[in-house]
């Protein structure tokens, strides 16, 4: 129950906040323009570069502004935004993110700049189709040493038990010899 509420609250709150920020900035600050460049397609697990470019109204890059990359997601019963990174823009106004697609089918990527004292907030979004369904995470433990397997144990035991068996065969030979020999050999033992 609580998680559902939280998710709903987040879904309502997030756009509201953005709206509020934009509205306020429109009154007081210069408008900022954010553009998100992302590949249209990617394979599952592929590292792609996503670039957000932040400029002012005149097309001049805004330098050193923090840009957040996020994506809406759903896991178990929790839904909401997953923050994928936070990068400050460089001299060309670019914030570059490395993104690895882990979710199948399509991903919506959002970049947002929350505005500062001079510029208003800005947002951009891009859609990326993700292909493939291969397992990406594989846990590995131990190491396979060639030759070390259950057969080694079988061979070892087989050797020992084979000798036991051979000794048993010797015993039967002794028994046969005893049957052939004249019985009561006059106490010649040892």
């Amino acid at each position: 129950m609580r998680m559902h509420n939280v998710r709903r609250a987040l879904l309502v709150l997030l756009p509201l906040l953005l709206l509020l920020a934009t509205g306020r900035a429109a009154l007081a600050a210069d408008p900022a323009d954010l553009q998100l460049q992302a590949p249209q397609e990617a394979t599952l697990g592929e590292q792609v570069t996503v670039t957000a470019v932040l400029r002012d109204a005149s097309g001049t890059p805004i330098v050193g502004a923090p840009v957040i990359l996020w994506s809406p997601a759903q896991f178990l019963s929790t839904g909401g935004a997953v923050q994928l990174g936070k990068v400050a823009t460089n001299a060309r106004g670019e914030a570059t993110f490395r993104y690895e697609a882990r979710t199948e089918e399509s991903v919506v990527l959002n970049a947002s700049f929350s505005g500062d004292s001079r510029y208003s907030a800005a947002q951009a979004s891009a859609q990326m189709a993700v292909q493939g369904s291969a397992q990406l995470y594989q846990s590995s433990a131990g190491v396979r040493v060639p030759g070390v397997s259950v057969w080694l144990l079988v061979g070892l035991l087989g050797g020992v038990w084979g000798t036991y068996l051979a000794v048993m065969v010797l015993l039967t030979l002794i028994a046969r010899e005893g049957a052939k020999a004249p019985s009561r050999a006059g106490g010649q033992h040892g």
Binding site: M3, V6, A73, F75, L76, T78, R102, T103, L136
Partner: peptide
């Protein structure tokens, strides 16, 4: 937080995070 290393996501019931990050 409980998560999935395959989808690289985790949650504590309040927020979602990219697990590796």
């Amino acid at each position: 937080y409980y998560g999935d290393l395959e989808e690289d996501i985790a949650t504590n019931g309040l927020e979602l995070v990219k697990l590796s990050q």
